[in-house]
Nucleic acid binder design. Structure first.
Length: 284
DNA sequence: ACACGGACCTGAAGGC
DNA sequence: TGCCTTCAGGTCCGTG
């Protein structure tokens, strides 16, 4: 499911019921996620207050009153369900937990937060807040694409000398944090750059970032901002994928290119084991 | 050091 | 209908 816009949307949904609230009761129903749940997971959370719920790349980051930070990742299929407590919840709500409801937080806010993840590629870890930036998942992450730290110079530097495709480079979380297969394809189409192009060719020309690098930075910002806006409008519905009709290239093999005046047909190829969708006519 | 293929899981969708 | 194959938006590890 989740790339940066989806994760950020989840964060915004959880924030009101988590920030400032205590973990009243925690259920670790199935500990064998991609990384096994931390030892004594429920006990270490219970009674602690969530000071702040943030996001870094595709990770949700909850700082706790205990001095530990709860790090969460949705993997491919993870999602959170929020049930606001109320009279009759046992009669009218979900009385039975779903098979893939692996972790349940009962918060002092009254909300019940359920982590569901069929494929179990998701992850929850507890790390010392002081050492958070040293954590291997976070320490290598590239800049946040919607912050100023992400710019053409930085991108050019990150891909300089990289002997790999643009598609692979943008998918690399060390280059930019938060992009996944869909938005990489979408951003490359907006920027009119071929996913097959060598990443280093957008980099620098005698010191200054090349024009393609600038276009790509703008395209990444644009595609993420648009997705975030659409997510907000969808308001919880369609937690999956997003509307295929709004994609420019993703999952549109054989369909016409949506760029004005472009006669191209969207092609699907496989790069590094994953589908890439692009227009061979207008992406160079 | 880097880049790639495969592995990790389950479920949905398509072909026959 | 049902079985089989393929594919899925993420990451990590081993190999070359």
């Amino acid at each position: 499911m989740p790339e940066l816009p989806e994760v950020e949307t989840v964060r915004r949904a959880l924030q009101p019921v988590m920030e400032g609230a205590r973990f009243h009761k925690v259920l670790a129903r199935r500990p064998d996620l991609r990384v096994p749940l931390p030892r004594r997971f429920a006990a270490r959370l219970s009674g602690e207050t969530v000071l702040r719920l943030g996001r870094r790349g595709k990770y949700l980051v909850a700082d706790l009153s205990s001095g530990e930070t709860l790090l969460m990742h949705l993997g491919m299929s993870g999602s959170f369900r929020i049930d606001l407590a109320g009279p009759g919840v046992f009669h009218h709500g979900r009385a039975t937990a779903g098979v893939h409801d692996h972790v349940v937080f009962h918060m002092s806010s009254g909300a019940t937060i359920t982590f569901n993840d069929p494929r179990r590629f998701g992850l929850m870890e507890l790390v010392s807040t002081d050492a958070l930036q040293l954590h291997r998942a976070l320490s290598l992450l590239g800049p946040e694409p919607l912050e100023d730290t992400f710019n053409a110079a930085r991108l050019a530097e990150a891909v300089r000398g990289r002997k790999t495709s643009l598609k692979a480079a943008l998918s690399d979380q060390r280059v930019i944090a938060g992009l996944g297969n869909i938005y990489v394809c979408e951003a490359l189409h907006i920027a009119r750059l071929s996913p097959l192009r060598a990443a280093s060719t957008i980099a620098t020309r005698n010191g200054a970032p090349r024009e393609p690098a600038r276009r790509l930075v703008d395209a990444v910002r644009k595609v993420l901002t648009q997705a975030l806006t659409r997510r907000a409008a969808a308001d919880g519905e369609d937690v999956d994928g997003g509307d295929p009709r709004t994609f420019r290239v993703y999952d549109r093999e054989g369909e016409p290119c949506r760029r004005r005046g472009c006669p191209g047909t969207i092609r699907r190829i496989v790069q590094a084991g994953r589908s890439t969708f692009y227009c061979p006519i207008c992406q160079r």
